[in-house]
Design a protein around this nucleic acid. Structure first.
Lengths: 230, 230
DNA sequence: CCTTTCCCTTAAGAATGTTTTAAGGTTTTA
DNA sequence: TAAAACCTTAAAACATTCTTAAGGGAAAGG
């Protein structure tokens, strides 16, 4: 990441202008958007490394925008907000924001947070997605647009559910997903206990992508917690 | 923060000596450094709550030091300076100092500023209980999101109960937890005496994270009371 | 519209990992 | 030096995860 790209999303021009001064100074490339819809369209076209998102925006609310972004891409999101109550909401609803700063804020504090998030993400994502819609995990390539999965260049055929689970875990590399969370994210319905369908799917995926399903390299189980892709 | 720790950074010994008298009197724990490089090395080792930093120092300039500190850690910085022009610099764009005082200064004024900064920061920190979900204790890192524990970068595998106990103690650094309290917090049920299961778990954790479980560095035994992480 | 194929779910036993129990040992305190 | 508090160990009990196979259902193909 020679020159990381940061997308600033805020409807108040003054705030973006102020941040631009500080961030340009740090050598970042900057993109701007006035609302969530604009932000999403910028993300379609550009390769962005981190997003600073204001929670109070017209058209699409910041929280909603955050969720949409999280669905598509894996990158650090730092939220801005005037009210500290909003922050409870962010934390409570678990929107997927990685950090937040309350207004009025010290621009340098935000710069520090940005640096810290970028450090953290490069550490987690040693191999970052090179193309839009592609997730790479070592020699495994997941194309979210074409639903193709390749291992060492060879085609792997996954069923829709299998693909959805793998994509979910790959998008959020490093975080552990419980069986319940996986079920709800993929099936989009409430999970009832004592149902090992997720487990069976995990097993099927492992059969297809792991050399030795008993010693999985891609999908690891975290005992008593869930599964993750490192 | 029972006894906040303050790091004084100045190349003029007399000034530090003077400040020490006033600040000790207020019940602060004091650390000193003669320049920015020293200051950074102290920060590596010690848990510091606030820094008083002179802008005119040999080796590493105060402003530079301030930026470096900001990169690494998040704590209040109060700058000292002889020249009022320096202050324009500090305020203008810069360093992320939270407050400043020009020399010659009234020590009592500095004390007041320190108090005010500590108040402000503890308030901010309450709102942000676990930034990034990471707890750090020296070279031990506990990530509550990924359920990962790292010691010197190496992965440590803890079982769910072990993790819960360590997290509990690490979250409340310095406070002693009785076996009964630990049991109730982790198991979420009433504790019946004459049951050494918590003890066995503590032992297992120590086996995994301590160099010498008999001389534990992280989880200390407080005789007749319980356990704590310092 | 019927057949075939593929996908999803269920269930039960096996394998693996974790927690508790209990007995004996060690350290600290008085 | 005795009593109390804490530590250690290993095996039994318990839980979770894995694996397999079979049946039902949906989509694709004739």
């Amino acid at each position: 990441m020679a020159q990381p790209t940061i997308l600033l999303v805020d409807d108040e021009k003054e705030i973006i202008d102020l941040l631009e001064i500080y961030l340009k100074n740090e050598g970042y490339r900057l993109l701007r958007a006035g609302n969530g819809i604009e932000a999403l369209s910028v993300l379609q076209k550009e390769d962005v490394d981190l997003i600073v998102l204001d929670i109070m925006m017209p058209k699409m609310d910041g929280i909603e925008a955050c969720l949409k972004i999280r669905e598509q891409k894996h990158m650090p999101i730092i939220m801005l907000s005037a009210k500290s109550q909003d922050m409870d909401k962010i934390l409570g609803l678990s929107t997927g924001a990685d950090d937040y700063v309350t207004k009025p804020f010290n621009p340098l504090e935000l710069v520090a947070r940005i640096k810290s998030q970028l450090r953290r993400y490069t550490r987690l994502n040693v191999q970052r997605p090179n193309k839009e819609n592609e997730l790479e995990i070592d020699e495994l390539t997941i194309n979210t647009a074409t639903h193709e999965v390749k291992l060492d260049g060879r085609d792997i055929k996954l069923t829709p559910r299998e693909f959805a689970i793998l994509e979910l875990l790959a998008r959020h590399r490093g975080t552990v997903w419980s069986i319940e969370k996986i079920y709800e994210a993929v099936w989009k319905e409430a999970y009832f206990d004592s149902d090992n369908t997720v487990m069976v799917h995990i097993r099927k995926i492992r059969e297809k992508i792991e050399e030795n399903p008993r010693k999985p390299k891609f999908i690891k189980t975290v005992w008593g917690v869930g599964y993750k892709v490192e």
